[in-house]
Design a protein around this nucleic acid. Structure first.
Lengths: 242, 242, 242, 242
DNA sequence: AATGAATGAGCTTTCATTCAT
DNA sequence: AATGAATGAAAGCTCATTCAT
């Protein structure tokens, strides 16, 4: 997630579980009105709180306390609890897709793009464990937000995969189903080795083993590696939109 | 899911979303005391209710109403709401693993076992959408139940995969990571094409596309098909315990 | 209000404005289950509280405190605050109509029936100032309850007035409009000399002056008084149903 | 209501129930400072909002929005919500009394004055349904405002009635009680046939029936009609602006 | 073995009012 | 003369859990 260099709470170490006052909130952003800053504080506080508490327990009281504002202030910026939840999901979705495409930007092959993209995804997951937590609950809280999240990621995958299929770098087939399968693997490994292990990095061996599986999933003509030169120009042009 | 012949509500058609009185509850099971029957009614009612409502909204009142007993009765059989949740998870976990191994029982190759196992999993998912719903929330409600669920399934996968690696039917590698990846793909496809499509079957094309990806994930010596005869005996002996 | 001899809080003296514990609630009524008693306690407490506080300030907390039960208990018996409000209105409506017809029962002429009915209404107003308070707010809180209240009273007036018009005891005309006018005068005098004067009785001079006006409103052949003997049999048969 | 020629929203058609931006507010009144105009806008907005919402739901936010000013501005002109409520009541009271006396101005008998006055009252009620709404709630919100409202109207009635009693045009008796009774009838008929029927006019038959009752209420020597000539001079001199 | 009345803490949300600008 | 962000108390309502019967 090279695109988001702003220091974030819990960014490097394991995530802090205490829903205390948001730290970064006081950092003033140029050209940001008072109201916008309060809104941002609340959004960040909500993300923070949603790392530790589920939707029901993530009370407005906890969020406003973490943001350092009064309860009533919340409703100046969000119409309901579900509203801020949806906005947290949307914001994290935007960020994670940005992080993945940024990470994969310099890749010279689809496979390298995957390796970089997965690494970017895992980095983001460590920095924003709320993404995982929030998605897990969205099924009940906001089904549309959930569908939107997965579909946007899957769609971002689509053309790169189609291009790679065209060059033979990836075995021909339904790119949507392949996209879903790749997402699924990334999410599962992230859950098991980052979330469950409380913010640790995915161990190198695990990452490499996973990449072997990913490599096989992509398939390719069997000599995809040798066609890299051809493919990468295509790869580079793809999947940038966030 | 050939191993679960007990009639269940909504077993054949699309799942019934109304959390009304549990139907099968009055079916008497031989040698079942009155108390045991009440317990079973509550457990089934809870599963039913958890299809439609999330953990917080699945109130004791709804569960007892669906079970046709008074609220107080609940605490004769379960110590708390979390208790019955854990037991629903455990029960569904037992059932889904049973369903998968039963489905794969006659397979003559690892690949065929996977095909049958996935088909069994999807069938179970349609019949018990609560499994998906419940797992999605377990992260917050009962983390240990969640870990236990995935780990038990992964463990069941372990020796079959190890055996298949030994025969060359599956590419050598860390079987645990492969198991997690396979689970992940199954869960994602099930979510996308069963849960989101409200209980429909996974379309045949999707299933076949997915199986192509699964096939590549397993890898193998490239002539795995020809070694089927050898493998299946091994396969048959594995992963049965429920 | 001879029909309601059960002692009521504030029944004889001026109404007690403190929304304290309902006194009569502990009086057990034969054949009344525990649940019914609690319901009755709440209803009486609500009437009590609504004497002093308007709908918005008559909080569930105040009502349950006055009833001596926990807040949650309220929702075992009433689905919402509006629900109990409607039921208080309905109950008071039933009671006031009963009080008026009971009071007028022995009348030997329409005029005497009016005199007794008005006296009964004033007595009821003193004993149940909530009626007046509640009706004043019903326009916004529960318009249907309001309309129902006035219409039921007006309807009860209808046939007695028609009968009296038939005998010439009352001047011919639209009995509905006459009924509304009579109600209105009663309500205004009750407001001015009972409610505003904090539960005092309507002074005799005021009552007599009002009766002169009522007498003129009814009109009649001018010798209605002399036809009393004829009329009262009719009068007696009318308007009893509650 | 010939005395109030300032155009008002919804003056001719049925009253507009939407609490949107006050229309007439931008009409500039000669010699009115900016501050006075804002004050007037707020007062009119409050009346508008109070047609649709009760005191509690008529939030400062709704009033300021309807007036097109910021919330803070409200407290530059009114010290509290009750303050503006009282001023709305006072203003409507002033207006309704003006409307009634203006309407009755040309009358040549007490009876004709009543007929014209009632017609004026009904016209005003249609144009300012807020009057009815506001009065209904004043009991709790501002008892003194309520008493003041009724008493001022009653007092205005006093000398005309006394004069008419002196001439025999109206039966001798306590004029105050007669005044209250007349007010009550007007209010009831207005409520029933204007407010409940959403701003319709009082049907002619209803009005005539009511006038028959009013006529009887006034009583008189029986040949009041023939003494009109005598009476009207008195009547004309009376009852005026307060 | 079962009932269902009762509890009370805790939730989301609204709103009159204040105050720095 | 006006703004609008911020406050924080208080409301209605839900629910897991207890307990007398």
């Amino acid at each position: 997630m090279s695109g988001d260099r702003r220091p974030r709470p819990g960014a490097t170490g394991p995530p802090d579980r205490r829903p205390t006052r948001v730290q970064s909130a006081d950092v003033s952003v140029p050209n940001e009105s008072k109201g916008e800053r309060t809104r941002r504080k609340l959004l960040e506080a909500a993300e923070q709180v949603l790392v530790t508490y589920d939707y029901h327990d993530a009370s407005i009281a906890k969020i406003t306390e973490a943001a350092g504002v009064a309860q009533g202030t919340f409703y100046l910026y969000f119409s309901s609890k579900k509203d801020i939840f949806d906005q947290v999901v949307a914001e994290l979705n935007r960020q994670v897709r940005h992080a993945m495409t940024e990470a994969a930007r310099g890749a010279t092959s689809r496979l390298e793009a995957e390796r970089l993209g997965f690494a970017g995804f895992f980095r983001f997951t460590r920095e924003h464990p709320a993404l995982y937590r929030v998605i897990r609950q969205a099924e009940f809280v906001s089904p549309s937000a959930l569908r939107n999240h997965y579909e946007k990621i899957a769609e971002g995958y689509l053309s790169p995969l189609q291009d790679a299929m065209a060059t033979g770098e990836v075995t021909l087939g339904d790119p949507m189903i392949l996209a879903w399968s790749l997402m699924a693997v990334g999410e599962a490994i992230g859950m098991r080795w980052i979330i469950w292990d409380e913010g640790k990095e995915v161990p190198a061996e695990v990452f490499e083993e996973m990449m072997k599986i990913i490599t096989r999933m992509l398939g390719g003509s069997g000599h995809a590696e040798s066609t890299e030169g051809l493919v990468n120009t295509t790869t580079r042009r793809r999947g940038e939109k966030v």
